[in-house]
Simulated assay, not measured.
Amino acid sequence: MTTQTVEERIAELGLTLPAVAAPVASYVPAVQTGSYVYTAGQLPFVDGALETTGKVGSDVEVEDAARLAATCALNALAAVKSVIGDLDRITRVVKVVGFVASDPSFTLQPHVINGASNLLTEILGDRGVHARSAVGVAVLPLDAPVEVELIVEVAGE
């Protein structure tokens, strides 16, 4: 019996692992130290562009923001792959940190970041279950509605 790879699972879900998003400032997309990879905050870029901008709760609906958070998570996996070469080396998503550009009255940040969390679990199964923070902020780079970063543990080469 063959085991499905992470990238095969991504394809089975109808998704494509994107190219790593180019940094919008002075940083790198991901860094490995020891057995951990830390990603920079990933915006919901698709083909190098943001699909939508604005505040969640006024300009962007919760369901759309959750879908954008999933896009951020997929972009974060691409950043992880850029430093480890093979996503099958992921042994655990340790933590997800999600930022939601929120209308001042918006309080459903956890529902938005569920988009990222649920996708990671769909792709990685038990390895994708993680600790998490979901934080409302006034504004994000490029007026993105959501940003997600990951900390993942990886097996040796």
Rank of each mutant, 00 (worst) to 15 (best):
P29E: 15
V94W: 02
P110L: 00
F45R: 04
P145W: 06
V28A: 07
L15A: 10
P141L: 12
V24M: 03
T71E: 00
E147V: 04
F45I: 01
E147L: 12
S82D: 13
L74M: 01
G115M: 02
A69N: 05
L68T: 00
H130W: 02
P23S: 08
R9K: 15
K55Y: 05
A40N: 09
F99A: 08
L43T: 08
V83S: 09
G128F: 03
G34K: 09
L77G: 04
A22V: 15
A69W: 00
A155V: 03
D86I: 07
V46D: 04
L108I: 00
V93G: 00
A66N: 00
H111Y: 13
R89Y: 14
V96M: 11
A78I: 01
D59A: 01
S58C: 05
G156R: 11
D103M: 12
A101Q: 15
V152H: 01
T3Y: 13
V137Y: 01
V135D: 14
L142Q: 15
A70Y: 06
V6Y: 05
P110Y: 00
A144I: 08
F99M: 10
E147N: 15
T71R: 07
G98V: 09
T107F: 12
G54V: 06
A11C: 04
V129Q: 02
D64A: 15
I123V: 01
F45D: 00
T5V: 13
A11Y: 07
L50V: 12
V96T: 14
V100T: 05
E153V: 04
K81R: 11
V146L: 06
E8P: 09
R89E: 11
R127K: 07
T53C: 10
L13I: 03
N75P: 08
N114Y: 01
N114Q: 00
P145R: 05
K81L: 07
V20C: 03
V96Q: 12
E63S: 12
V100C: 02
V93L: 03
